[in-house]
Simulated scan of single mutants.
Amino acid sequence: MEQIDLKTKHKSQTTITEPFSFDTQGHSWLLAFGNGHLSIEAGDKHLDFNRDRPVRLLYTPKRGFVRLSLAHYKERSQ
């Protein structure tokens, strides 16, 4: 998993093998996940992905999760 804090521009990568949670700190985030099964719970919303390609998401406190194309992910990560 790659996560980029859009407020601080801090970028980190982690290999996830067990359930994982993180504090959004009220910031917007770019998140990228490799292929395979991905299940996200945020408040009362549940997103489920089982893909053979990576999943890229934008998280904002107001809108929650929005799926991004590779081009939009790269554009926002600059």
Rank of each mutant, 00 (worst) to 15 (best):
T14R: 08
R67Y: 11
V66S: 11
F65T: 03
Q3N: 09
S39T: 14
G64R: 02
E2W: 07
R51Y: 12
G34W: 07
P19H: 05
S39H: 15
F22Q: 08
R56P: 01
I40T: 04
A42Y: 14
V55F: 00
D48I: 11
S21P: 05
G26P: 06
H27N: 15
S21T: 10
T8E: 05
H72T: 03
G64V: 04
I16H: 05
T15D: 11
D23G: 08
H27V: 06
L31R: 00
L30A: 00
P61D: 02
K11V: 12
L30Y: 02
L58K: 04
T14K: 12
L6G: 05
E2F: 12
F20Y: 14
T8V: 01
I16C: 12
H27I: 08
K74I: 00
H27C: 11
G34H: 12
K74N: 15
E41L: 08
V66P: 02
L68E: 05
A71V: 10
D23N: 15
Q3H: 07
K62I: 13
L57M: 10
F33G: 03
L30T: 02
V66L: 04
D48T: 05
R53F: 13
E75K: 12
D44A: 00
T60Y: 10
R56M: 08
E75N: 10
K9F: 15
H37T: 02
Q25M: 04
N50F: 03
E75W: 13
G34C: 08
A71E: 11
I16G: 13
Q25H: 02
K9C: 11
A71K: 12
R67S: 14
S77F: 02
Y59D: 00
T15I: 05
M1L: 07
Y73M: 09
G43Q: 02
D48W: 06
N50R: 04
H72A: 12
I16Y: 09
P61I: 03
S77Q: 12
F22D: 07
G26I: 01
E2T: 09
L68V: 10
R67V: 12
W29K: 05
